[in-house]
């Protein structure tokens, strides 16, 4: 049996990715199980989903605590969560990242493969929904499920044009994923911690929710307070008659960019 943990954000389709993996594996003659996060899902909030794949029917109902493979759908998640936590020795980490695996700052006796799934998704789907784009990388790095089965599962899930766009995404990630290499980094950058999931209440830092980041050009700012006034998260403070962004509170919704009457707030893709 292999266990898989998928890290994503509400809206990136981690749960759909888990179902597609399980469904495609079943088409390949395996038994499988796709477990969503237990709780409420918020767009942008970190969440996890799990998959088990086995030759016999999967019976256990606990979460996958020691996965063989971890998939990370969002490039920033590894900055705020210990995504390799619990990963078995020699286990595989598939990261959505622009960086080659050698430059990934995650330590441990693990293997790493990377693919720029956000770029693939933006180009094929026109939206940063990376769940399908990563599946091709999984098939290539792990050896299964077969691309034929993944295609069938996608067509069932997304009939029509959307399905074909997603199939284009999995083929590109199959081609573009890096080879699997042993992790070379030694110092763990993220402290070992529980995997925080979404839900209610106050959070500490939501920087990693952003796909795009607002950057204010103060020279052009007229001091109208619109950005401050409309920010749902009070991420924009008003100091000395000028706005100042507290980035740990900014989810990157883009309201300030949209509302600025003189268009002095740029919205730049976060690059890791």
């Amino acid at each position: 049996m292999i266990g898989i943990r998928i890290h994503g954000r509400g809206g990136q389709g981690a749960v759909t990715a888990s179902r597609l993996l399980a469904d495609a594996s079943f088409r390949d003659g395996k038994f499988s199980q796709a477990i969503p996060m237990y709780g409420t899902e918020r767009r942008g909030a970190p969440l996890v989903a799990y998959v088990r794949i086995d030759d016999v029917r999967v019976r256990e109902r606990e979460l996958v605590h020691e996965p063989d493979v971890v998939i990370v759908l969002d490039p920033l998640l590894s900055k705020e969560q210990s995504v390799a936590s619990g990963l078995k020795k020699g286990g595989l980490l598939i990261l959505n990242s622009k960086l080659p695996p050698e430059k990934v700052e995650i330590a441990g006796d693990i293997k790493i493969a990377t693919v720029d799934a956000t770029k693939i998704a933006l180009e094929t789907l026109k939206r940063p929904i990376t769940n399908t784009a990563i599946l091709g990388a999984f098939s290539k790095s792990v050896g299964y499920p077969t691309m034929e089965s993944i295609e069938k599962s996608i067509r069932k899930q997304f009939p029509g044009r959307v399905g074909e766009m997603n199939i284009a995404a999995i083929h590109r990630s199959y081609e573009e994923v890096t080879p699997v290499v042993q992790a070379t980094h030694t110092e763990p950058v993220v402290e070992e911690s529980d995997i925080a999931v979404g839900g209610y209440g106050v959070l500490k830092d939501v920087s990693s929710w952003r796909v795009f980041t607002p950057i204010i050009d103060l020279d052009k700012c007229t001091g109208c307070r619109s950005c401050w006034l409309f920010c749902p998260e009070t991420a924009i403070q008003w100091k000395d008659d000028r706005p100042e962004i507290e980035y740990h509170k900014c989810k990157g919704c883009g309201i300030c960019v949209e509302e600025c009457p003189v268009k002095c707030i740029a919205f730049e893709r976060v690059v890791v």
């Binding site: 918020r42 209440g201 500490k204 749902p232 998260e233 989810k251 919704c253």
Partner: peptide, 10 residues
């Protein structure tokens, strides 16, 4: 008390 757990652009 922010940031909260609402979706982006809520």
């Amino acid at each position: 008390i922010t940031p909260g757990s609402a979706c982006q652009g809520c």
